[in-house]
């Protein structure tokens, strides 16, 4: 097994120390950082995503794999220096809408998007509409994702989309919505560009919206 295959395997198995040592070894073998991410860490995380979607992995396994990946990425950051933008498939901005602080689903989504080669900007939780708009205008993501776990905070997804319209920048971004109570009907009703039922479908939907499926 090559070092990158071993690195991917350590992410899949959630072996944090091994993910660190394999990342170090890959660097020692002078493999470039972007390749280490794509063919090692992210490749492992993609498999974790597949297993999660298939019901073979549950939250603890995903969390520990995600931690393994992020420890590896931390080591690589000094070598990425401005390089990462040229290699991303797109930029995905994400946050949980105002009134909602639930973020496990969002954090899993982030891992899956990073695994799929997106640059991710995480605005955190309880994010007001105006903050979404301001951050999007400043940082120009391709897609903005609005998470809501509660039926009581779903209307805030609509209000956030309305805030983009009021700021006359709605057409500059694709907006995706998701979260436990959210449905395709709801997404259509509030004129979002895309809805996904889970993190893996969300990645596929994002690629479709960007025409890179």
């Amino acid at each position: 097994m090559s070092v990158l295959e071993q690195l991917a395997q350590s992410v899949i198995e959630g072996k944090i120390n091994e993910a660190v040592s394999m990342t170090q070894q890959a660097l020692a073998e002078e493999i470039d950082a972007v390749t280490i991410i794509q063919d090692g860490l992210a490749a492992g995380m993609n498999e974790v995503g597949r297993r999660f979607k298939a019901g073979e992995y549950f939250l603890p396994e995903v969390m520990v794999s995600a931690k393994s990946m992020s420890k590896g990425v931390e080591l690589l950051e000094p070598y990425l220096a401005g390089d990462e933008n040229s290699n991303t498939v797109g930029t995905f901005m994400i946050g949980t809408v105002k009134g909602d602080v639930h973020d496990i689903g969002k954090n899993i989504l982030i891992m899956m998007f990073q695994g799929a080669g997106f640059k991710v900007i995480d605005l955190g939780v309880d994010v007001p509409p105006e903050k979404f708009v301001q951050a999007a205008v400043e940082q120009k993501p391709d897609i903005v994702g609005l998470c809501a776990l509660l039926s009581t905070t779903m209307p805030m997804q609509a209000k956030t989309i309305a805030a983009f319209e009021q700021a006359s920048c709605r057409d500059q971004f694709k907006i995706m919505v998701g979260g436990a109570p959210v449905s395709q009907d709801w997404s259509d009703k509030i004129t979002a560009d895309g809805y996904a039922a889970d993190a893996i479908e969300a990645v596929d939907m994002a690629k479709e919206l960007l025409g890179i499926a």
């Binding site: 019901g55 992995y57 549950f58 939250l59 603890p60 396994e61 689903g105 436990a180 039922a197 889970d198």
Partner: peptide, 12 residues
């Protein structure tokens, strides 16, 4: 439980 599955595996 989450919407789609258990949070932890039946084994855990």
């Amino acid at each position: 439980g989450n919407q789609d599955n258990l949070q932890i595996s039946p084994k855990t």
